[in-house]
Design a protein around this nucleic acid. Sequence first.
DNA 1: TTGGATGTGGGGAAAAGTGGGGAAAAATGG
DNA 2: CCATTTTTCCCCACTTTTCCCCACATCCAA
Lengths: 135, 135
Amino acid sequence: MFLGEHEHTIDAKGRMAVPARFRAQMDRGAVISKGMGACLSVYTMDRWEEKSAELTSDKTSDELRDFERRIYPSASEVELDGQGRMIIPAKLRAYAHLGSEVTVAGVRDHFEIWDRGIWNAEQERLENEGETIPF
Amino acid sequence: MFLGEHEHTIDAKGRMAVPARFRAQMDRGAVISKGMGACLSVYTMDRWEEKSAELTSDKTSDELRDFERRIYPSASEVELDGQGRMIIPAKLRAYAHLGSEVTVAGVRDHFEIWDRGIWNAEQERLENEGETIPF
DNA sequence: TTGGATGTGGGGAAAAGTGGGGAAAAATGG
DNA sequence: CCATTTTTCCCCACTTTTCCCCACATCCAA
């Protein structure tokens, strides 16, 4: 399970260290894709396959084709280098408006990558508008 | 699995580099054919055979003959040169209105080749018309 | 305090993408 | 059947990107 909030950086080569606690779960591969809102989502390969299968199961063939043309091209298989870093494709970095300072947030079955400024603003919004946390 | 969006070019000789990540999956051969919409589709040989078997299974013999006469003559087996490039037959290039700048999009079990301008317009259309994607 | 794990930066080799020359093969026309 | 033109294909060359490796600074725990 992915938990926690980690402040990391994207370097000049487009690399970002994956939080060490997340790495073990990614050993069977992972997929990065556009997330909901201004962020990117990283799923384990297993979860990615489950989730994309669910989403495409109940569609007519026309809907399905459009849908597949949105989700698969916007995704990319993730690989880690010797230091546990991943490369974030330029297109995806642009989509999520990522600068060099980002926040990596674990969200149960996946983790999200946010530009740090956007993340902070979003968290503040949630505190003001949102529900209280029942813990 | 074919994923991602790759911007490539078709040179004066009609050649286009296949994204390196796609090549390994094509080692048992591949087939290029007219796609749904203004694009070309490339399937691995295995998937091509599965898919054409599915599509021809539930047809009457008259339907089947017409169908086969549309599908197979326009398709072509894909071969890569020493640099990993494929030649896109002129008829297919015309069918999909491909200029020299194209986008190669991975769509799960195949990839598609689009004129870059048409691809961008189509993606924008899908974003506006479609539902938000829950990833 | 020290040693290992973690996050960050950068050099350099390798691979990927692109372009073009020229030989071999195929098509065309007498 | 031969000669000419056209097309195809193999090879080399160049540029850019990617990836592998080493280095170092920091943090936390023993």
